[in-house]
Computed example of a mutant assay.
Amino acid sequence: MEQFLEYRMVEDRSVVEQAHEIHTLAKDLKNCTKESPCVLPNKFVAEGIISKLPPSWRDFATSLKHKRQEFTIDGLIGTLDVEEKARAKDIRGKGVVGASSANLVQKNNSHKNKKKPPQNQPKTKKTTTFKKKKKTGACYVCGSTDHFAAKCPNRKGNDSANMVISEPGGTSGPAGLPPC
């Protein structure tokens, strides 16, 4: 029992191998004495394995604890195996273990070459003036060239209505309507 409780995983060995060792220690407790075997529940052993993970696995251990599901020991060891292989793949992709790396970001200082106005002079604002184009043409309402449709005296009342006037002697109005 003491070996099980004091077992600490180390960084330089496979986590899966160390988990198997902890599982073996738990199974050996069952066979320790014939009179009163010490059987540890699988949940206890699985939680023990998670709590004994090395420091670099702390985030992964926390994520396992937050899943709120009961792990079988074999399922947990399988999960550790997948994570260990993914970490090994990441390390191979990054290069040498323990090597330092840095990303360099350079700021574009092209604005330093531009002339700045002296601080005691106010900055000049650029203003643009637009010339209004003179309207040409005739009123759309009455056809007069003296004014435009917006100021047309014929339009002032807005009391007019659109109507259809039929031709005299016609039998029907537009679109087959009877004459007025």
Rank of each mutant, 00 (worst) to 15 (best):
P117H: 12
H66I: 10
E47G: 12
N113F: 13
N120V: 14
Q119P: 05
A88C: 06
S51L: 04
E70W: 04
Q121E: 15
I73N: 12
R87N: 11
R58M: 04
S63K: 11
S36R: 13
K116V: 09
A26W: 01
A86V: 05
G78D: 14
I22P: 02
H66W: 06
K126P: 00
K126G: 06
V97G: 01
A138R: 14
L80N: 10
T128D: 12
C38L: 13
G75Q: 08
L53R: 12
Q18I: 02
P54Y: 01
V96H: 09
T62R: 10
A138T: 15
G48I: 00
I77S: 07
K132D: 00
K133R: 11
L40Q: 09
K43N: 07
A61P: 11
T124Y: 08
K116I: 10
S14N: 10
C139S: 01
T79H: 11
Q119W: 05
V82C: 04
K135S: 06
T124I: 15
L29P: 00
G48L: 00
S56N: 08
A88K: 15
S101Y: 10
H111F: 14
V15W: 03
V16N: 07
P37Q: 10
K89L: 14
L104M: 13
F44G: 10
K114F: 03
S101L: 09
T24A: 12
K131G: 02
N31A: 12
Y140G: 11
A138C: 15
G48V: 01
S63P: 01
L29S: 05
L64W: 03
P55I: 07
F130Q: 14
E17C: 06
E35C: 07
R13G: 08
G48N: 10
K67I: 05
S51M: 05
F44C: 11
K65I: 06
V45D: 00
L29Y: 00
I77T: 13
E21T: 14
G75D: 11
R68F: 08
T24V: 04
G93D: 12
E11Y: 01
R92T: 09
H23Y: 06
K67Y: 03
M9Q: 07
C32K: 15
A99T: 09
S110K: 03
F130E: 07
N108H: 00
V45W: 01
V45G: 01
A138V: 14
G78R: 09
S14I: 00
N109I: 15
V96L: 09
N109E: 15
N109H: 08
K94G: 02
Q119R: 08
P117D: 02
K123F: 07
K133C: 00
V82P: 01
E83P: 02
G75W: 03
H20F: 04
